[in-house]
Nucleic acid binder design. Structure first.
Lengths: 352, 352
DNA sequence: AAAATTCACGAAATCGTTTGCGTTTTTATA
DNA sequence: TATAAAAACGCAAACGATTTCGTGAATTTT
């Protein structure tokens, strides 16, 4: 039988190899790092032994020594979300390709918890942080102070003016503009808008796109057709949503279409409208931001504004890694807005 | 103005505080760890300075010293997946509560990539690994060797007999049995089954549940009503799926219902049946495993077998942490199967 | 007042790597 | 042959934190 050579609690270290081969620790280290100082014979012996015994360098020790951990902290509001999952997928793809590990944490839309995440990641020695801020978050000073202390930070999806760094998001203004325009061109005139109550760019940009489309089409903006839902808690979101829909449908001059601003709002809105017995799109048309691949299979098929979530994640990770590795000295921070796509389906069928 | 006190590249260390307060490093460490050896006055001074300068212990150093990193490696096939996202949410909740960080990696259903993930996590010094194996994976010897070397491992969702440890999954047999029974009780007799081509327990358990329900209902199992799809690649999955459906519908004695075994298969199957012009449930009924919260809103509303994904994640994380912290010496490994729930909707309406 | 405790702190080893520099041995040059 | 230059390796410091042990000073005990 072949004995387990590894000590019970941990793996082979340089010291173990050194002892076994009767060499010094530094010789082992240099051999494994293919240093010119070591003879080919020795290198081979060391390499062979190391492979046989599954040596792999202790990342903690290496990180400590080099001041780098080759890990990236990712802070998102929630893991259980389509769009976010796709962004994480993109982040992970790029990170893995560049041998970075990602440490994911959830803020659950709480500013406080978000700060705790960041703190933990920072002290954990991450080389940089990718963050999509919680919707509660208004104070970016802590993040700024970390940035000033030298920690690379990149914002993605939800952006903010309060911090100067690379930012990768979707072109929310254009997406909202296109969605609204699509409704207008399909014959809808009284277009309501359901948004969140956040201070983040994502909300205002989409609102502005909506307004601009109305303006460009010479349709007056009616404040009563704008309602926002509390995004911090699912319960509240649903009740706010139902309330808003009932409010819309009881207006004397009620809307003939709704444009919804986020994934959750879009899909829940469809569900609620169905439940309340409204017929889409005859009673009311619906288009909204969401990335669900079930849009086609919904009842009715839901027209959507699709965000390139995977690509956003990829780009954000690339930007962060370039900051970490200082590929460009003294970087010019830029904000990239990736294009969104309208996918017109039955829920916004042209008015006859 | 208030100057940034932190050095450019990194944070405050014990040494910095020691120098600033003219004390020794050990005194600082002990103060912050509230040691009895230090006077109250000194402790207060140190604490005050530490807080003011945002000191937080370097996790790498601490981990190195203690031989623990307070981090957990999580290996899943994909991030972009509903059920998995919910499981990750559960894992993260428990991990955060116990101050563990989670490092998530994707195997993308590849055995090779999975091995690379595990290797990376191990050398990264994780305290334990949570893994839902890739469907390609047949060889668990590497995982076993790590386990023998002392690394705690817990399997979740997709289990395997090839490794002896804690396992947390859904009661797939019962879920499949219930789903099939539900179809039978609703008047369907010719029930087809769409599954994956994997060797993992998840597939065979669901198949067995299906078979058992047929048997208990005195319905003969017909091999031609069982088809499996390649799960390793989305393209292939879709084409396999379409092929299988066409095959089913062209049988002389064609099925009047389909029971689908996984999230992806279930939702795509619905989409495909719609696209092919079949009417659900009149032409063919459909029930399948999936956790999507859009089931209600689909066309038609999809009957589902729901897995307690969040809870599975929670429990798996708890089990792993208890292994890590050796709450029970020499643990009796156990396999927990959490209950699934049938949610009957329009897609399996009773035959008239 | 002398002895024994307690108190408050510092020195140094340790975790596993990396790396600059010193040392020995071998080889090449004058 | 004496000397310079490479080659091959070891020593030791460093990264930041924890922890054992040792040491003066202050306090208490007889």
């Amino acid at each position: 039988m072949h004995q387990i050579e590894i000590s019970m609690n941990n793996s082979v270290t340089l010291k173990d190899i050194a002892k076994a081969l009767n060499l010094s620790i530094s010789t082992i280290s240099k051999s494994l790092n293919d240093s010119y100082e070591i003879s080919i014979d020795t290198k081979q012996k060391v390499l062979e032994y190391a492979q046989k015994h599954h040596y792999s360098p202790n990342r903690l020790a290496k990180g400590l020594k080099e001041g780098k951990s080759r890990s990236i902290g990712v802070v998102v509001c929630s893991l259980d979300n389509n769009v976010i999952a796709q962004m994480l997928d993109g982040i992970d793809t790029v990170s893995s390709d560049n041998s970075y590990q990602i440490i994911i944490m959830q803020s659950k839309e709480s500013e406080k918890q978000e700060a705790a995440c960041i703190e933990l990641l920072y002290s954990g020695g991450v080389d940089g942080i990718l963050i999509s801020p919680a919707c509660e978050t208004v104070d970016f000073s802590y993040l700024r102070s970390l940035q000033e202390a030298g920690l690379p930070i990149v914002l993605f999806d939800r952006l903010s003016d309060q911090i100067n760094t690379h930012k990768v998001g979707a072109d929310n203004f254009q997406g909202a503009y296109d969605a609204t325009m699509h409704l207008i061109k399909s014959g809808y005139k009284n277009i309501a808008h359901l948004n969140t109550n956040t201070t983040l760019s994502i909300a205002t940009e989409r609102l502005n796109g909506y307004k601009q489309a109305l303006k460009d089409s010479n349709i007056a903006y009616r404040p009563e057709l704008l309602r926002s839902c509390d995004y911090s808690d699912t319960q509240k979101l649903n009740s706010d949503l139902e309330e808003a829909i009932l409010y819309f449908m009881n207006l004397s001059d009620k809307p003939d279409a709704i444009f919804t601003a986020t994934d959750q709002i879009s899909t829940r809105c469809l569900t609620l409208l169905n439940k309340l017995g409204y017929h889409i799109p005859d009673d009311i048309a619906l288009i909204g931001f969401t990335n669900t691949d079930l849009a086609e299979a919904l009842s009715p098929a839901l027209s959507t504004v699709h965000q390139p979530a995977f690509e956003m994640g990829q780009l954000a990770a690339k930007k962060l890694i370039s900051l970490i590795e200082r590929k460009d000295q003294d970087p010019e921070y830029e904000t990239v807005m990736l294009e969104t796509y309208i996918k017109a389906r039955a829920s916004t069928q042209s008015k006859h």
